[in-house]
Design a protein around this nucleic acid. Sequence first.
DNA 1: TTCTGATATGACAGCGCTAACATAATTCAA
DNA 2: TTGAATTATGTTAGCGCTGTCATATCAGAA
Lengths: 341, 341
Amino acid sequence: MKARVRLPDRKSRVTLTEVAELAGVSEITVSRVLRSKGPIAEATRDRVMEAVRAVGYVPNKIAGSLASADSNLFGVVLPSLSNIVFPEVLQGIHAGLARTGIQPVVGVTDYNLETEEALVRSLLAWKPAAMIITGSEHTAATRKMLVESGIRIAELMDIDPVPIDIAVGLSHRQAGYDTGKHLIARGYRRFGYAGLDPRSDIRARIRFEGLVAALSDAGLSLQDKVLADVPSSTLVGSATTARLLAENPNLDVVVYPNDDMAVGGVFHCMGAGISVPENLAIFGFNGLDIGRALPKPLSTVRSNRFRIGQTAVEQILETSIRPDRPTVVNTGYEIFEGATA
Amino acid sequence: MKARVRLPDRKSRVTLTEVAELAGVSEITVSRVLRSKGPIAEATRDRVMEAVRAVGYVPNKIAGSLASADSNLFGVVLPSLSNIVFPEVLQGIHAGLARTGIQPVVGVTDYNLETEEALVRSLLAWKPAAMIITGSEHTAATRKMLVESGIRIAELMDIDPVPIDIAVGLSHRQAGYDTGKHLIARGYRRFGYAGLDPRSDIRARIRFEGLVAALSDAGLSLQDKVLADVPSSTLVGSATTARLLAENPNLDVVVYPNDDMAVGGVFHCMGAGISVPENLAIFGFNGLDIGRALPKPLSTVRSNRFRIGQTAVEQILETSIRPDRPTVVNTGYEIFEGATA
DNA sequence: TTCTGATATGACAGCGCTAACATAATTCAA
DNA sequence: TTGAATTATGTTAGCGCTGTCATATCAGAA
């Protein structure tokens, strides 16, 4: 006799076994019906489906994944959710995942690489089918885990460094450089920069370096910069602009790490009676809706966050085997002239 | 002899067994070390941890969850990610989940109850420890699944209807009503509304009803409303405002379903030379950063999205057993006077 | 009639881990 | 010294499902 020790009440009482008994078939047949796998007689399928409905069966993917060694989960690691950019990437990921049955498991690092490492470790424990992570800067341990996981890895936003497997995004150095070139071509000469702590947003720092390089190549240099050591926001954009202009009333253009900050700059000017772009030009980054909606649309660089997320998923779904050589997808950017620079 | 049929190469080759062999202990001991469960000799722990590092072991939570019947996953169902409100809720959820080891699995419904049903079904298959879902309006099947899952269920944003288990949010009817009362008290009489298709955002509709009720109680009525059948955005706010004012040049206040739209209204006025609030008052909902940063801060109602997410998690973690009677947490709202109304 | 090849279903083992219950080793009071 | 209590580790049997390899059934061909 088989003495079964019953474990204390488990959450799901209804298992394949019960459905199978009710339908008068074996468990594996129920399993096959539910996964539409293998040949099933029409009558059997109907009986099974009826039983499923009758007992309110909800399959247990945990057990399923363990048995079949694939998980239908994607790990997603984002630095932040308060910066609208990343929810937009997440939207793209969702769009790419639609009708695949794959669910994203989301983690947030707060721009901290140690947190990222812990997060990656714990996400990998779910044996995700793939991992989508922001940026290419990781701790050695993170990188090792990602490499050795064997699953597909997409590193988003930046395509300058060589990725582990897939990179989707744009060249931030180039974007920064082009910003500088564009503004110089439009006649601006006295550049200011109102930004954030360069340690938090690496890509903003790289764009900044590109900008400085463009100025330098044109024989110019940045007149001044003000950096705030707080999260990005429109309010901070106003405040840093105020500080920058207080010290440098003669600037003719201010560049920002993103549109939130730049819109804050515009608002400051409105309040201070500085006419944009006649007295001061303003230039952002991202191409957010809010900038476009301003009475004078914000001049900026359009990154394509949604497309980055979506493309990453598409690339991953292309093949489940990691190719020998990394894949780099440039989703590009466009300078949007707007009316503020 | 035990004839083992080896399955085709699985993703993770390193299992507890290998770690155990290398450390010269049994599997369960390794398991206990990794989960810090039960008494373990210092020396054993060290040997095990060394072995774990040596082979680069990543635990398999799928197997662990199956064995222990708990998952350390929370299902999170949001209607949208393009509306900044929901990423903020998600942030709150993340904050509440920090250092619990619980990961959220996120699904997006696009405000569609059928999609929601499919999503809930597929999230429940991961046997999450709890489910966080937006709103209280679900299909009958969704509700049934949630009720019968036995896990804790938090329904966010709205506390007017009776929840399945936990509701966290605010009374949108009351918020709408208070908006009306507040504006009437400030002397406004000729009300317009520039909103969206009421089918998509149920809570906006309820606020609208509250507003209308307040007007009615004061012997007033809404002069006109314009509804756009597209997703909310600042640009749409400008456009609907333009349409509304074209037909009703005599309005003295326009109320919006959210701040994005309201900011669009402000921008329209700036462009059209309408001075706010002297010629036209503008009133939003949410209390977003962007509204606060305007040269004239937007008058609005502050909902507390972050706190809603965080509180929901706290409530769920309170106890894993669903109490007999539903819990309702009112995270409240505050009317923010601003400078536009 | 026998055989072939589809079509339909089932038996069985095992995915990698943990709960529950041993068992072994150690400590310490009586 | 002995037994009880305490600490440390091991054995066993699953968790609920799916892969693999039978087995059974039934056309239609030879």
